[in-house]
Design a binder for these strands. Sequence first.
RNA 1: GGGGUCGUAGUUCAGCUGGUUAGAACGCCGGCCUGUCACGCCGGAGGUCGCGAGUUCGAGUCUCGUCGGCCCCGCCA
Length: 578
Amino acid sequence: MLKRTDYCGELRAGHEGREVVLTGWVQRVRDIGQLVFVDVRDREGLAQVVFHADRHDLMEEAKRLRPEFVVGIGGTVRRRAAVNPDMPTGEVEVEASDLRVFAAAKVPPFVISDPPQASEELRLKYRYLDLRRPRMQRNIRLRHEAALVVRNYMSRNGFLEIETPILANPTPEGARDFLVPSRFHKGRFYALPQSPQQFKQTLMVSGFDRYFQIVRCFRDEALRADRQLEFTQIDIETSFIDRDDFFALNEGLMEALFALIGRRVERPFPRLPYSESMERFGTDKPDLRPPFEIRDLTAVAGETGSEPLRAALAAGGEIKGLLVPGAGSLSRGQLDKLGEKARELGAKGLAWIRRQGGWKSSLKMSDADLERIWGALGGAEVDLALLIADRKETALKALGEMRRTWPLEDPSRRDLLKFCWVTDFPLFEWSEEEKRFVSMHHPFTSPVEDDVPLLDTDPGKARAKAYDMVLNGVELGGGSIRIHDRTLQRRVFGALGLTEEETEGKFGYFLDALGYGAPPHGGIAFGFDRLVMFLAGEESIREVIPFPKTTGALDLMTGSPSNVGEDQLTELGLKLKK
RNA sequence: GGGGUCGUAGUUCAGCUGGUUAGAACGCCGGCCUGUCACGCCGGAGGUCGCGAGUUCGAGUCUCGUCGGCCCCGCCA
């Protein structure tokens, strides 16, 4: 057995004259007759190996090499006559004196190269080949390094990584559970955890004080570019917590993670209450890169003579405006397109104003009135004002979406890292489907003290001690200060419409635990895959997961999920319908 | 649950208002080539047009269904 001395991708001019042994996969063979060049690839990169005619036996063997053969090569590192500046190892090559073919390879269904020359479908079917691509090797390595940063950072800050069960209880709130039938107790089921929420809070009751875990979570919901059935969270919980200190801790974690890609992070992160985020950006995960935001024009518009605006006001609506810098030269067609988009987003219509070469607007209004609105928005000559008069939520949502998707006039803004905290979320939201309040975050989230009385009178108005960390319009993580008082926890369950029996059945042990001395505590959970995706500059979570499922929830490589035999079902006390 | 889009050599794609023998590039196979590095040159093989019905004298092309990929809405405490 040839024993490797160096990785292919690590050979440099300094290795000149050294006897080396390389192992790896054949990337490409260039046979030019009396001379054969073979590029050999391993996880660190490519190296060129050259076979000369004076070693006839070796060269004949080399001519039989094909892409993806696994080889070991012994030889001497030589400086190249003609340097290849496109290759990190381009200053040297290995003059072969030994060649071992460890394995031949079938012709691969696609060439291993970046960018991939195969559909994602094919890549997923032959994932083991796709993962050989340098880009995938880099992504998976980055994932490892990110996990290492998290573990080191958390441990340095006094946190213990503690494992929690994968076989847990179904939860009445939240996403659909993956169920696991119990063979010992037929008819009863475990559920895979949507998050270790109750366990980590229980660990706080047990006095572990500072917990974290890089942990797999499971949610049986539709898949997306940024969502998988199973995904990984950085789960964190601490006791006796000061919110400012906790925010700083998490900001420090981001600082450490983004240092992996050489990016500096501006701290502290700005904080904005949910209501402000909605008013200014029309979303609870604002992208702070675009340098413009939504303004309220309700008061100004009421003073104008515009019939449609006054009618919207009379109907209880509000008027919101978005001033888009430099967009004053849009064509009528483009403006019509925007109007159509606004209607798709649920607004009744979209009005616009611009002033290049005199006032122009879709609104019939006096110049004085236009001037008034323009002034309220602070518009300049080249800008474009967009107005929506509608129900407040509709107007904000539509303008927020326009803002979010507006192309940035300055491309360098795309590269900015704009973090923020969104705080004071509503505790509950009304579920039309279930005709009851449901937790916006989760049922263990503490209400803001002042709003506790609202639990009985007007639950929809109660605010929560919940927070999200948002980066460039992407939710990286969310958490809250938890309820550590048993009585308050019961009241919240009550407000959610859970009966005494349900509460006892699903959360009995937990309420009991809270009764034995629970410290004030809180925490957060980050989407680890999304973070790595951001670090890697990828558009899909599947690019940072070695073996992901398709959006149809299939594993194209293994064929999972699969059918099971009657025996196996019977043993579990299960019978398939139909 | 809903909407959009795609499916044609091994791969990535082209294929017009339905009409002769379904093309290109890359890859693959064979030959030549002593400094290549997307090597080059010459030659060759390779197709269930995802699958199933239907319309038609005739379907890769039109219709319906179905399977699969991707994106979005709902959903994702």
